[in-house]
Each structure stands twice: as structure tokens, then as C-alpha cells.
Simulated scan of single mutants.
Amino acid sequence: MTNEIGDPAVRAFIDALNAGDRTAFQAALTPDATMSDDGTDRDLAEWTEREIFSSQGHLEVERAEDEGRKFVASYSNSTWGAMRTRWQFFIRDGKVARFETGQA
């Protein structure tokens, strides 16, 4: 269902995440990007390394709204397995400035 993602910044984020492409992932973010997980702000570099890149993270969008800036997805990685998650993105200058995720 990633075809429901109309925002190019969010699409670039998802594509890079699913490809395990750290360079493309960083390019999708503003230099000062921030994030939260289950309502708690996290260190973006540590969180993405642990939850995405070192654990083969993969995201499958189930339902999207607001051009894909908000969606529910099945997220899986080798640490936690599969779980239903919610994501919200805040875009600035065509890049992800902040994302918030957590269990749905």
C-alpha cells in the first residue's frame, strides 16, 4: 500500500528504510531531525541503528491519510518480529523533520 504515500519525503523515508540504505535514509531527513517512539523522544541515530538497520527493519503500510504523513503499518525487524505500528511525519523543506511512531 505504499502507493498511498503521496508525500515524496515520506516515500523516500520508507523506500530507504525498506532497502536498508543508510545514506538514502539520512538524505530523507533534515540535519536536525528528531523522533519519538511510544511518546518518548529518542536519540535518532541510536534508535534507527538499533530498530532499523542492525535488525533488518521493514515497513508495510496498511492504511494512510494526509498524503501519507500519517499511517498504520506492519513493522517487522529481527529483534521484535512483526507488530502493528502508527507513524506520523512532519515535513520541512521537502524532508522529514520529525517522525513519531509507536504501537498501534
Results as ranks from 00 to 15, higher is better:
Thr48Ala: 08
Asp37Gly: 02
Ser54Val: 02
Ala64Cys: 03
Arg11Ala: 15
Arg69Glu: 11
Ile14Asn: 02
Thr34Leu: 06
Trp47Asp: 06
Ala9Trp: 08
Ile14Arg: 00
Ala45Gly: 08
Thr85Tyr: 15
Phe99Ala: 03
Phe25Leu: 09
Ser55Val: 03
Arg92Ala: 08
Lys70Val: 14
Val10Tyr: 03
Val72Ser: 12
Arg63Ser: 13
Ile14Lys: 00
Thr79Pro: 00
Ala97Asn: 05
Ala33Leu: 07
Ala82Tyr: 01
Phe71Pro: 00
Glu51Gly: 01
Asn18Tyr: 07
Ser78Thr: 15
Glu51Ala: 14
Asp41Ala: 12
Arg86Gln: 14
Leu29Arg: 02
Ser54Asn: 14
Ser55Tyr: 01
Asp7His: 11
Ile91Asn: 02
His58Val: 07
Glu65Cys: 04
Glu65Arg: 12
Thr23Leu: 08
Leu59Ser: 11
Phe89Gly: 01
Met83Thr: 13
Arg50Ala: 14
Trp80Thr: 09
Arg63Asp: 12
Glu65Ala: 12
Ser36Leu: 08
Glu49Pro: 01
Ala64Val: 11
Ser78Phe: 09
Ser78Lys: 15
Phe71His: 05
Val72Ala: 08
Thr48Tyr: 11
Ser55Leu: 02
Met35Glu: 07
Leu17Ser: 04
Ala97Glu: 13
Ala27Pro: 04
Asp93Tyr: 07
Arg92Met: 02
Phe99Trp: 15
Leu17His: 15
Arg11Asn: 07
Asp66Glu: 09
Met83Ala: 13
Glu49His: 12
Asn18Ala: 03
Glu46Ile: 12
Asp43Ile: 06
Ser78Arg: 15
Ser54Pro: 03
Ala12Asn: 11
Glu65His: 01
Gly81Trp: 02
Arg84Lys: 13
Glu46Asp: 15
Ala64Glu: 08
Val96Ser: 02
Glu60Phe: 01
Lys95Tyr: 04
Ala64Met: 09
Ala104Trp: 10
Phe99Pro: 04
Ala9Ile: 08
Asp37Ile: 10
Ala24Arg: 15
Phe90Ser: 11
Val61Trp: 09
Asp93Val: 05
Ile14Cys: 03
His58Met: 06
Ala24Glu: 07
Ser55Met: 02
Arg92Cys: 01
Met83Ile: 11
Asp38Trp: 11
Arg22His: 04
Ala97Lys: 07
